Simulated assay, not measured.
Amino acid sequence: MDIKPTVLIIEDEDAICNFISAILTSNGYQVVKAKTGKEGLSMFTSHVPDIILLDLGLPDIDGLEILKNIRQWSKTPVIVVSARGHEREKVAALDFGADDYIVKPFGTSELLARIRTAMRHSPQSAAA
């Protein structure tokens, strides 16, 4: 029996979240969804995902704060998926510990490739 990698999507826009979820599910991933930063942090601790897709523009907590929080105690790969495309925002997210940054809108193949790459480089995959 194959164990499906778990992806936590922290995204407040339903259409985008459902789109990403459908892509991932059809490509063999298990998906956990959160609409707020607070819910995302809770889901992260309870589901222990293999990778996180994190939007920066959340209704309650800025995505960079969530990233900083996660990096205090976890090396789980985090890919920022954001409409914020300015270089300074990308640099800030990467400096705070994001493994990658993808700007909306994005292609399905690119998203899947970035997930595969981040998981290949993660400490969890090295231990497996």
Rank of each mutant, 00 (worst) to 15 (best):
M1K: 10
D2I: 15
D2E: 15
D2L: 15
I3Y: 05
P5S: 11
V7W: 07
V7R: 00
I9P: 03
E11N: 04
E13N: 08
E13W: 03
D14V: 14
D14L: 05
A15F: 05
A15D: 15
C17M: 12
N18F: 13
N18M: 14
F19W: 12
I20H: 10
I20M: 14
A22V: 01
I23L: 11
T25A: 10
T25S: 12
S26K: 14
Y29W: 00
Y29C: 07
V31W: 07
V31A: 10
K33L: 10
K33N: 11
A34D: 03
A34L: 05
T36R: 08
G37M: 04
G37P: 03
K38D: 10
K38E: 15
E39Y: 04
G40I: 01
G40A: 07
S42Y: 15
M43G: 03
F44P: 05
S46H: 07
S46W: 02
H47E: 13
V48M: 12
P49K: 02
P49F: 01
D50I: 01
D50S: 07
I52P: 07
I52R: 11
I52A: 09
L53A: 06
L53T: 07
L54Q: 01
L54E: 07
L56Q: 05
G57L: 15
P59R: 10
P59K: 09
D60R: 08
L64F: 12
I66A: 04
N69V: 05
I70D: 02
I70Q: 07
I70E: 08
R71Q: 09
Q72K: 14
W73M: 13
W73I: 13
S74R: 01
S74F: 01
K75L: 13
P77E: 00
P77R: 03
V78S: 01
I79K: 01
V81L: 15
V81Y: 01
S82N: 02
R84E: 13
R84Q: 13
R84Y: 13
G85Y: 04
H86M: 12
E87S: 11
E87G: 08
E89V: 07
E89H: 15
K90A: 07
V91A: 12
V91R: 13
A93M: 02
L94W: 02
L94S: 01
D95K: 14
G97V: 00
A98K: 05
A98R: 03
D99I: 04
D100I: 03
D100Y: 00
K104G: 02
K104N: 03
P105W: 04
F106S: 00
F106Y: 11
G107R: 00
G107K: 09
G107C: 06
S109P: 03
E110G: 02
E110I: 09
L111W: 00
A113Y: 07
A113R: 02
A118I: 06
R120I: 04
R120K: 15
S122R: 09
S122A: 10
S122M: 06
Q124F: 12
Q124N: 11
Q124G: 06
A126H: 13
A126G: 06
A126R: 14
A127I: 12
A127N: 05
